[in-house]
Amino acid sequence: MASTTFKIWRGERGQGAFTDYATEVTEGMVVLDAVHQIQASEAGDLAVRWNCKAGKCGSCSAEINGRPKLMCMTRMDELPAGEAVTIEPMRAFPHVRDLVTDVSWNYEVKKKIKKFTPRPPDAPDGTWRMAQADVDRVQEFRKCIECYLCQDVCHVLRDHHKHDEFIGPRFLVYAAALEMHPLDTEDRLRDLKDNHSIGYCNITKCCTSACPEHITITDNAIIPLKERVVDEFYDPVVKLVRLLRGKK
């Protein structure tokens, strides 16, 4: 097969530019293969984060031709033939080097969400009983590989830089998995409203379309959480009762 041009973002700490590389593309190749080929032949210090190369670890997130993708799961033959391919780091996080970004903010956010707190065991041997039908929904959320592509495309983070206030789709999914876990007894609704700013999400569904695990982030996780928050804090009947009784 023919040689293809790759325009790869090179630089450090936000400063950088596209550098052109040409490399051979063979049958079945994915974008990460091309990056590795370039690394082995002419750019030994080209920084890229990757691990499993099988779409399971969520390390190699990048923007390929401007689209949020895992490099290991993006086949060359799904990109326009004969055209240069651009590869950039995720733009919603601080840049480290070349294709690598600092995603440590995500790890800090997760710690702020109240941890799983199960009800007492159902059986004397310390085990629980849950029906498959009751865990299907949570299992969908637990497919998340933490690639943070949903965070990367979320305009609240990417364009408005609300990292200090808003936890982003990944952690709304995480909170939903905890809130909808049949065994969990913790209440995270006030946190979601006051500290995690779930209200900032205006349901543009960019996160859902970016998810490589095809988790229906907006419909199955965020909207039900928003509804729970509304039921808890903005129910007009409850509000009226509270008003009449003179309570806040």
């Binding site: 199960p118 310390g126 629980w128 009983r129 849950m130 029906a131």
Partner: peptide, 20 residues
């Protein structure tokens, strides 16, 4: 394994609700 369930793991279930 049971300890993982106590920490939030969600294994597939048997018809009677235990870990499959």
């Amino acid at each position: 394994i049971r300890e993982l369930e106590a920490w939030g793991a969600v294994f597939d279930r048997t018809p009677d609700g235990r870990i499959l």
